[in-house]
Amino acid sequence: MKNSAAVPLGPASAATAPARPLSTARAAILDRLRSKRSPATVEELARETGQHPNTVREHLEALTLEGLATRSAAAARGRGRPAMLYQASEAPEGSAQYAALAAMLAGEIERLAPDPVGAGREAGVRWAQETFGPSAGPVSADDARRRVLAELERLGFGVEDAGGPTVRLVTCPLLSAARAHSGVVCAVHAGLVEEALRLLGRDDIPSRLEPFAEPGACLLTLGDPAPAEGTR
Score class of each variant (00 low, 15 high):
43 E>R: 08
48 E>F: 02
129 Q>W: 05
199 L>I: 05
167 V>Y: 13
105 L>G: 09
114 P>Q: 01
180 A>D: 03
65 L>F: 09
162 A>Y: 11
40 A>W: 00
46 A>N: 01
106 A>Y: 07
47 R>D: 07
232 R>V: 15
188 V>P: 03
106 A>C: 06
127 W>T: 07
174 L>S: 13
31 D>C: 08
68 L>M: 01
153 E>Q: 15
54 N>G: 10
165 P>N: 08
115 D>C: 05
138 P>G: 02
118 G>E: 04
109 I>E: 15
162 A>G: 14
158 G>Y: 05
66 E>V: 03
167 V>Q: 11
130 E>S: 14
146 R>S: 10
194 E>P: 06
16 T>Y: 08
23 S>P: 11
56 V>T: 01
136 A>W: 05
156 G>M: 07
46 A>D: 01
207 S>Y: 07
197 L>P: 02
65 L>Y: 05
53 P>E: 00
211 P>T: 12
110 E>C: 08
27 A>Q: 03
63 L>E: 00
154 R>S: 15
35 S>K: 13
37 R>Q: 12
81 R>M: 09
1 M>A: 15
18 P>Y: 03
26 R>T: 09
182 S>W: 08
48 E>R: 07
50 G>C: 01
119 A>T: 10
89 S>L: 02
45 L>G: 00
200 L>E: 05
59 H>M: 00
152 L>N: 05
10 G>E: 14
188 V>A: 10
109 I>G: 12
144 A>P: 11
37 R>W: 11
56 V>P: 02
60 L>A: 00
57 R>F: 01
122 E>T: 13
177 A>L: 06
192 L>K: 07
27 A>T: 06
134 P>A: 11
172 C>F: 13
7 V>P: 12
126 R>F: 14
219 L>A: 11
45 L>S: 00
152 L>Q: 06
77 R>F: 09
211 P>D: 07
22 L>I: 03
144 A>F: 09
156 G>H: 05
68 L>C: 00
95 S>M: 10
66 E>N: 04
190 A>P: 07
153 E>W: 11
213 A>G: 13
169 L>W: 09
126 R>M: 15
207 S>M: 11
180 A>C: 02
48 E>L: 05
107 G>V: 08
